[in-house]
């Protein structure tokens, strides 16, 4: 029995830096995606036609390509051509972020469109400019509506981050693969890795549920209707 627990502790210690890398990857890319997703959603709803079309093409490409193909394209193709950096973590965070931005823009777009058009008209008639109305009237409501869908990005990015192993990011899967090649205990180590992912998934979802509760407007939510 002590052998088993010693093995588990050793494995966890070895994988710990990978957990940090995975979580940093997820946090950086979800924020990058947020930074891109909100303006893209606003652009797609209120922007001029060419801009809307451009955002549509961006979303089509980044949602249509497999994560792995995008990682390879950026790591072996685009980044070396541009000569920016060859740090796998930077490439991975960029790709996951760009991709998540495409998905997030559609979540926010749906939320913006779910707000009655009359609100924009009312805000305009009160003398607000369109950008003011978007910033002060539409977005504060839309972002709250979008939160449940948006928090789904976390488990998606968490599981997608494992693919970044393929370009050499030292995240959980890469660390467990290294350990497997040393100890020849593939099943046990990969199962421990799976449990880590599931716990991270669960913990993250709990956190998002808390945030959702915190920022909801009292008397103005699911319960109020």
């Amino acid at each position: 029995m002590t052998d088993v627990s010693a093995f588990i502790v050793q494995t966890l210690l070895y994988l710990a830096p990978g957990i940090v890398v995975t979580l940093s990857l997820v946090i950086v890319s979800i924020l990058l995606g947020l930074l891109m997703g909100v303006p893209m959603a606003v652009g797609q709803v209120y922007g001029p036609k060419p801009l809307r079309a451009l955002i549509g093409v961006y979303v089509w490409i980044f949602r249509g390509l497999p994560n792995l193909v995008l990682l390879f394209l950026f790591f072996f193709g685009i980044f070396p051509i541009l000569g920016i950096t060859d740090d796998p973590f930077v490439v991975a965070a960029t790709v996951l972020g760009l991709r998540s931005g495409a998905y997030q823009s559609q979540i926010f777009r749906g939320a913006i469109q779910s707000i009655g058009e009359g609100q924009m008209t009312a805000a305009r008639s009160l003398g607000m400019s369109t950008p003011q109305a978007i910033r002060h009237i539409i977005l504060p409501q839309a972002l709250r509506i979008a939160l449940p869908g948006w928090s789904n990005e976390y488990p998606i990015l968490l599981t997608d981050s494992a693919v970044c192993y393929a370009i050499g990011v030292a995240e959980i899967l890469a660390k467990s693969y290294q350990l497997v090649s040393r100890t020849a205990e593939p099943m046990a180590i990969f199962l421990i890795a799976a449990v880590i992912y599931i716990l991270l998934n669960y913990g993250g979802m709990r956190l998002f549920a808390q945030i959702e509760k915190k920022i909801s407007i009292p008397g103005f939510g699911k319960g109020a209707l």
Binding site: P186, A194, Y202
Partner: peptide, 23 residues
């Protein structure tokens, strides 16, 4: 559902391809 939605697909493939032979 909890296991297969929470476990990254790539890790699942590793379990099936690299892990199962040890059993």
């Amino acid at each position: 559902i909890i296991f297969f939605k929470g476990c990254p697909l790539l890790l699942l493939l590793f379990i099936l391809y690299f892990g199962l032979p040890s059993l």
